[in-house]
Amino acid sequence: MRLNKGRIGFVLPAVVFLAIGSLFPFFYSLVRSFQNWNLNVPGDKITFTGFNNYAQLFTSFEVFGKPLVITIIFVISSITLEFIIALLLALLISSRDIKGKNFFRTCLIIPMATTPVIVGLMGKYLFSDFGIINHYLGKLGIPPQPWLGSSTMALIVVIIVEVWQWTPFMILILEAGLNDIPQTAVEAADMDGAKPWQVVLFIKLPLLKRLIVLALMLRTMDCIRIFDMIWSLTGGGPVNATETVSIAAYRIAFRYFNIGLGTAYCFMILIITILISIFYVNILTREEQGAW
């Protein structure tokens, strides 16, 4: 009996905290998303308008569709690039005795430890019209590019900065996974005359699958909700060209003060996030039930 006494007390503070920090705001927003609360119209009566806000999101491409497309382009290209670069580098580095490997690893976590806002500012500085990147392109004979001034270029810069900051994270995770692969499996394949690329493709990658899915999931979730780095790098501009869903929702709620539409927007983001995580979790559970 003594063992069980007060066991609720251990978790209660955490549950209360969470209820206040997430649960209550969650339902508050949910209710608001069905109302026409617009602070720009003073004295306007707040009434329930059903799915009006949601309908508005779907009828106007500029409001919801465009930021969503930008977010999808951003997420898919950053994550693909991060994964490919990291996989190649992790394969290169793993399980070889490199002098100063620990120092190298520590250097790799510096970008991800740097505040995203500052990373954005550094990007803004390096890619500015008279910045160092244009300077070196000039030396190679390429005319200076208006990196942050043109819509396509700005999105590319945002992706480059994101890849710069988070590829090291992928490298570390994949490298840890590669080091965990039993040496015997690789040696057996070697004995059977497998070429190095065959070992990677048919032995190492399948063994790493769970870890890869997990790492991709973490990055996808982070990229969808990205706000701070893009905010300080481009502010969403030029002309909304780098406005992801989080920034768009922020603008609607805190610049145009359309709270009803803003909360509806947020719930669409949440639904998309949940769908994507279900997709990933499904792959993971299927993996675990699989042969290995």
């Binding site: 920090g21 969650f26 909700r225 706000f227 869903v245 709270i259 947020c266 983001i269 996030t273």
Partner: peptide
């Protein structure tokens, strides 16, 4: 839950 969902409330 993405932070933007919570912040308005």
């Amino acid at each position: 839950i993405p932070p933007i969902v919570i912040i308005i409330a």
